[in-house]
Nucleic acid binder design. Structure first.
Lengths: 257, 257
DNA sequence: CGCCGCCTTGAAGAGCCTCAACTAATGTGG
DNA sequence: CCACATTAGTTGAGGCTCTTCAAGGCGGCG
């Protein structure tokens, strides 16, 4: 039995206790308490729809576990994943949407929802929460910039190399001894990188023949030649700088309070 | 002499007076006065650099006239335009940047700068300004979503059709009798749509042969078959919905106060 | 065991990019 | 006032990458 990270058998766990304590430090105590009281946790199975265009405007939520894909289906049948929400991301904070936009669970996931009214109220009264909220928004913009740049300026093989290197960013990894666990299936990755599952396969195979990586199984990759991958990725920056602050590190989980 | 919109001879003019009066209504009077005092206007020639990675963090600015391109050069020599700033956009509000990101003037432009300290202070004290600021951020995210979707899910010809239709959005038009004035040159458009100037030319030519448009000269396009273009664009929504609120309509110009 | 989904591999074709040449408009210097 | 250089735009030909279509392998689960 393979350890597929996108089945219910192995949802990534975030150390909620620590992070929550940290959040508690970062926003006003009273705000935290108010939030806690209005919170409810929703568990979501992989591939189910969290929200889609036409549905009522959702509450504000924080993704606690798993990954969501924010996607849009073009009229020509193609799909584009615009963002992957990772644990700690704030949900329901979007601007306008367009037809066929949806949030779906890419893996089993857990979301903590707050009443919008409560959250909005706190946003007005608590500058610390406001700051946290703002930082999250900026992070989302940064990720979009990066994705747009990847899709627009890089070739598929360069995108795939970048994708592996920025694992923690786009496709959070659970690295152990250089082994990455791919959190998304081929089709999702393909739809995010604007290519096809076939190209992903072939490129990964190619990287393996070049000695850059080793495919242990379809979802486990060992990075053998880090520098080589960086070259293939056509990056101008250290890949660490990508992963760093991009991943929000605050998760609210009221159950553990 | 052709009326090239991207030379100094014909910078788009926004009715600053009206818009400014409107802003005055929308934020607190005291905030407006404070902003006005700290303001200075900068005129920028086409193709000059407004800001690039490595420079000191700029003040907060509002684009009054012209268009800026927010771009990033990949290590492989390719360039991707991530966003076009249009009059009314708030500048200097970015999150982190990456190497070779820059703001450059796509046309002659005029920017009104405020001291960051002043602006930030007002942001804390004036919920109305905060709201305006927030709406602008959301608009930027929406545009990024749209651009990412275009680049990722559409074919070059579909992108170009969409680009014409969403003229007011990506490349604001000054429409008169169905005639669009293209605000950006071919290379900029190509780098925004992740294609090449040649493909733009050929595709426009193709549209002309199909009777969808008429190229009056390289920068003036008459739309002959609106519905046909919508079909080619593979849009699921009415194109008007794109242009609508995407274009910020607030311009601050202290000189005219 | 057999179906189903996901991944993989193969072959063929088309679309797009690259390179190169050419045109048109603008500006310069004599 | 005219040759010349320059730049943006256009057009053409060729090649290659990537997609598309199709079939096969593998593991999981009823």
């Amino acid at each position: 039995m393979r350890d597929y990270p996108f089945t219910s058998k192995s949802v990534d766990h975030v150390p909620c206790g620590q992070i929550q304590a940290r959040l508690q430090d970062e926003i006003q105590a009273q705000s935290f308490e108010t939030l806690r009281r209005s919170a409810r946790v929703q568990k979501i199975a992989a591939d189910s729809v969290v929200w889609k265009d036409g549905m009522e405007r959702p509450d504000i939520g924080i993704l606690c576990e798993g990954y969501l894909r924010f996607q849009c289906n073009g009229a020509n049948g193609r799909r584009q994943i615009i963002a992957i929400a990772v644990p700690g991301d704030i949900l329901g904070d979007r601007g306008r949407t367009r037809p066929d936009m949806s949030f779906e669970a890419a893996t089993d996931a857990k979301i903590c929802w707050f009443e919008r009214k409560v959250y909005d109220g706190l946003l007005r009264s608590d500058p610390l929460l406001r700051r946290k909220h703002y930082i999250n928004s900026m992070a989302q913009v940064d990720r979009l910039h990066w994705l747009t740049l990847m899709i627009g300026a890089l070739r598929p093989d360069e995108r795939i190399a970048t994708w592996i290197l920025s694992g923690k960013f786009f496709m959070p990894w659970r690295a152990q001894g250089g082994v990455l666990t791919l959190a998304l299936n081929r089709r999702d990755v393909a739809d995010m990188l604007a290519t096809t599952p076939e190209t992903i396969c072939r490129t990964l195979k190619g990287f393996e023949k070049e000695g850059l990586i080793e495919m242990i199984d379809p979802v486990h990759v060992r990075v053998l030649d880090y520098a080589g991958l960086v070259t293939r990725a056509a990056l101008k920056e250290a890949p660490e700088s990508l992963a760093d602050i991009m991943l929000p590190d605050c998760v609210l989980e009221p159950g553990a309070v």
